[in-house]
Amino acid sequence: MLKKMGTPCLIHQPKYSMYERWVEDGLLDLLGKEGVGCIPFSPLAQGLLTNKYLKGIPRNSRAAKSHGFLQKDAITEDRVDQLKKLNEIASDRGQSLAQMALAWLLKDKRVTSVLVGASSAEQLLDSLKCLNNTSFDKIELNGIEGILKS
């Protein structure tokens, strides 16, 4: 529709992370085929894919605030177990869990850019380090899939 008007769609901004993968169900293929860029938001699943929750729920985190959109029930014991296992793979790659979660999105060339938020310059610099390693071997990818399905 936009092409016919002469204003082709440049880009699509979907919610996409290890924990929210609906884009893999047809959208990424469509974007690749139609030559439309992709810029995921919430790549860390509202802060879930960080080291914040590896030891449970800290008091000041978004999950602990009632008005935050990451609700307490999103952090179950099973979820914390999963995060710990993912963090082990990240450590082996020389990355934090957050850095690996960002790199994991960038492994797909159809993903043009990943949107990160930052509550400080330090946090942004930490996220940027994900670019030091954005390729994954089969063992790492299978390991991640296994953990996410567990």
């Binding site: 938001f41 850019s113 990943v114 949107l115 990160v116 930052a118 994900c130 954005t134």
Partner: peptide, 11 residues
């Protein structure tokens, strides 16, 4: 586009 972009949703 840069591989990492800054979102101003929060902060």
């Amino acid at each position: 586009l840069p591989a990492i972009s800054l979102g101003l949703w929060h902060n």
